[in-house]
Amino acid sequence: MLDDISLFVKICRYNSFNDAAHQLGMPLSTISRRVNQLEKNLGSSLFFRDKNGLKLTVAGNEILTACQPSIEHVEGILNTLDTKKNWDKGSIKFVGPTNFISKLFADQFFDDFFEEYPDIVVNFDLSNERSNLNQQQFDLAMRLGDLEDSGFICKTIGKMEFVLVASPQLISTHGSPKNLNGLDIFPKIIFSPIQNWQFTSAENCSLDYLPQGDFISNNIDLCVNRTIAGHGICYLAKQYVADAIATGELLTLLPQYRPRRRLINLLWPSKPLPYRTRVLIDYLANKLAKTI
C-alpha cells in the first residue's frame, strides 16, 4: 500500500492521470488500476473525476496532507543516496609513503574500504622519497611529520609513536646506555627519512640526537631486519617493530626519554572535494585513530 500512496502523491502533483502516466513512464491503465486498488483498500474515494482534471475528495485531501511531507522526505534521502552512489564511481590518485602504506596493506587495513566502495579505484602512487606535491597532479596525499607550507588543505588524522630499539645481543656486547650521550658507542641504523632522533625528557624538555649512521636506508624492512640481527640501534615507528618487541627480539632503550610522536597528515588541493575522496579521508581518519 505504501507504494500506491507514494504514487497517489505523485499523481496529485500532475493533477492528471494522463500527465502522471507520461511523467512517470507508466501505462495509464496501470495508474488507474493502482489508484482503484488503493481506494478499495482505504474504503474511500480519493478523487472526483471530471473533464476539468482531478479534484481531491475530503478523504483524499486528508491523506495527501498527512503523507506528502513524509513521502517527499524519503524521496529526498533516496535521491541523495543515488547521487552519492554515482559520486562513488571513479578514481583517486593517492600519493603516500611506500613503507607506511605497505604496512597498512599487510595489516589488511584497506579491506573494509574496498568492500564498501567497490566502484572507487585508488591509484596508489607511493615513494619512500618525499616528492614535491606542487609539481604533480594528485587527489589526496599523506605526509608524515612536519609539513612545509604547501598551500594545500591539510587534516591531521593521527600521530605515530616511535621507539628506540636494539637487539638483546647488541646490548649484551655494549651494555645498556644510560643517556643520549651513551648512544655514541653503539653502531646505528638510520631509517633515512628520519635524520634527527627526537625525544622528550622526564622534565618535558625537547632533546635531539643526530646519529652518525653505520647503515642508512629508506627501506623499512632492511632497517628492521638489521636491527633484529644485532647490527645497530634504530629509531623507528613502533608499528614496524611491535611484534619483535613482544617476542623479545628487540628491546626498548632509554625509558626516561620519550621519543616524540610524528603527525600523520592528509593533504588535498584547494578545490571542490569529490565525494569519493571525502569517504577515503574519513575512512583513513577514523581507522588510523584506532590503530596508530
Rank of each mutant, 00 (worst) to 15 (best):
I5M: 07
F8R: 06
F8Q: 06
F8L: 01
C12Q: 06
S16M: 07
S16G: 07
F17G: 09
N18Q: 13
A21K: 11
P27M: 05
L28W: 02
S29N: 04
S29Y: 04
R34C: 10
V35M: 15
L38K: 06
S44E: 14
D50H: 13
D50S: 15
N52D: 11
G53K: 08
V58E: 13
N61I: 00
N61C: 01
E62C: 08
S70P: 00
E75F: 08
I77E: 01
N79Y: 09
N79Q: 15
D82Y: 08
K84H: 15
G90L: 07
S91W: 05
K93F: 00
K93E: 09
G96F: 03
T98S: 14
T98M: 06
F100I: 11
I101S: 01
S102M: 08
F105D: 01
A106T: 11
Q108L: 09
F113E: 06
F113S: 07
F114N: 09
Y117T: 03
P118K: 04
P118G: 04
V121Q: 11
N123S: 14
N123V: 07
F124D: 07
F124S: 11
F124I: 11
D125I: 05
E129W: 06
R130G: 02
N132V: 12
Q136L: 14
F138Y: 13
D139S: 09
L140I: 12
M142C: 13
M142K: 02
L144I: 15
L144T: 01
D146R: 13
E148H: 10
D149N: 10
F152M: 08
F152T: 05
I153T: 08
K159A: 12
E161D: 15
A166Q: 01
P168M: 08
Q169T: 13
L170K: 00
I171E: 09
T173M: 12
H174K: 11
F186N: 07
Q195C: 00
F199K: 12
L207T: 02
Y209D: 05
L210A: 10
G213P: 11
D214A: 12
D214T: 13
N218T: 10
N218V: 06
I220K: 06
I220T: 06
C223H: 00
I228N: 13
I228G: 12
A229L: 12
A229C: 05
H231L: 13
G232K: 09
Q239S: 05
V241S: 07
A242I: 11
A246L: 08
T247F: 04
L251R: 13
L254E: 09
L254N: 06
Q256V: 04
R260I: 10
N265Q: 07
N265E: 05
P272W: 01
Y275S: 03
T277W: 00
D282T: 02
L284D: 00
K287D: 00
T291N: 00
T291D: 00
I292P: 07
